[in-house]
Design a protein around this nucleic acid. Structure first.
Lengths: 245, 245
DNA sequence: CGATCGTTTGATCCGCATCAAGATAGGTGG
DNA sequence: CCACCTATCTTGATGCGGATCAAACGATCG
């Protein structure tokens, strides 16, 4: 587990992207780089929280198991995103979800004791943690709202647009970064339902054939991603939502 | 707007309950006490975030409006809970929901500038904010999971148990602290559906007649509240969930 | 070449929303 | 005191969306 120097943090909404250079140095010096091959588990639901992670490359899937054995995917995380930011300062020290590498993944690991100590010593570190947590909370809120109000077709449309932006892909044509079953699990519908939504997506300019996706009529897709679907009229999901009225 | 000395923070999971005495003093000295009568609006969705609030007494409802005019209640907050904790440190300075007094409410208000400054000066204040945010995030996560997996009957059962604990009521018999339409809006179902779930609730020992509720067979209700339904076998919603198998 | 995985497609069922019509209670004015 | 009204809630009938069960298809792999 050697240290790495060439870590890139591309995600503009990430925890670290936003740090001043001094704090970045502090963190990069302390962080131990770890490699997880595809399908390797980073931690399991119920494990005690020992580390804070920042993803350097690859994609991590968070999911939990319901008592009846059903997997619910709560998020996909990419380079620059952090894991266990909420867990560090909460009362329970148990992981509330599994984390598994979707593809080959490298992360920086920090012990939670060190991070707590450092947050106490450097206010700017604490502030950045606060900002990261705030954003997570906001995102969860809007997502909770969306999920309860949107149909399977709308959810699929949103997901594809978000995935395109998140992974920096070309809307004019790209390959799905993960299985369709994972996508279904992420948007909270069954595989069969997701499958049936593709013909309907085609009608509104989203073509999905095998792994290949085309998002037509959306040159400025970044502005169209629907974190706040309900509010922004450029959003495709918004249009779908109101097509019927 | 006079200052108040006799503020009680009963909620054990609240932001302030957990502060050391010194920090409590700092906050209580700065906080301005405000009174909001029943139905008065604290702030509206889209307003710019100017203050951080801690509830001294009463109940506040958070909700947002969908484009088609439907109200979605995201939370009820009671004495000791805080408002806008996530908003203070996030990029957007817009309120993402309305806040309205369910009954007569008193709050302590702090300007966000002051709180940011104070969090920078006193690490323990920053830590308590981190802890509060962490907890909020965790709660949102489990709730998002629950909502997608639970039926209307299960959601109603959960809500009644939580409400009982949250408001410190007697499970052997209490009156609903709010309208049934608000409850329906909170658990994300229509009034009619909530209404139809009451007969089914009776079968599992939850009696609802008009405003009066009895939670039978649950002497230790606090242990039964289902923040983590999926995991705890004592939880009534867990039992409902698995009654069919 | 069969075997397994991921996906599609079809048939059916169930839960919740919707629309519509009472029911009950609290409040107001005559 | 009664008639009326509105808010809140209940009950019934119907329709739709998504889950479930089941079968088949194509691709990859040993």
């Amino acid at each position: 587990m050697n240290r790495t120097a060439n870590v890139s943090f591309t995600n503009t909404t990430s925890l670290l992207s936003d740090f001043a250079e001094i704090e970045k140095d502090i963190l990069l010096k302390e962080g131990r780089s770890h490699f997880y091959p595809r399908k390797k588990i980073l931690f399991r639901q119920g494990d005690s929280v020992t580390h804070f992670y920042v993803i350097s490359s690859g994609t991590v899937r968070l999911f939990y198991e319901t008592p009846d054995g059903c997997e619910v995917t709560t998020d996909f995380l990419v380079a620059g995103d952090s894991l266990c930011s909420a867990e560090i300062f909460s009362f329970s020290d148990e992981q509330c979800s599994h984390a598994v590498a979707v593809n080959d993944v490298t992360v920086l690991k920090f012990s939670i004791e060190w991070l707590r100590k450092t947050a106490g010593r450097y206010p700017s570190v604490a502030f950045n943690l606060l900002a990261a947590l705030s954003q997570q909370t906001q995102q969860l809120k809007t997502e909770a709202g969306n999920n309860s109000m949107m149909s399977a077709v709308q959810l699929a449309a949103c997901f594809l647009q978000k995935a395109c932006v998140l992974h920096g892909l070309d809307p004019a044509g790209f390959n799905l970064p993960y299985n369709k079953s994972l996508i279904a699990s992420r948007i909270g519908v069954k595989m069969e339902t997701l499958s049936r939504s593709f013909p309907k997506l085609k009608e509104i300019g989203i073509t999905v054939e095998d792994r290949h996706v085309v998002l037509a009529d959306l040159p400025n897709i970044k502005q169209n991603v629907c974190d706040h679907c309900s509010g922004t009229e450029q959003c495709r999901a918004y249009k779908i939502l109101h097509a019927k009225n």
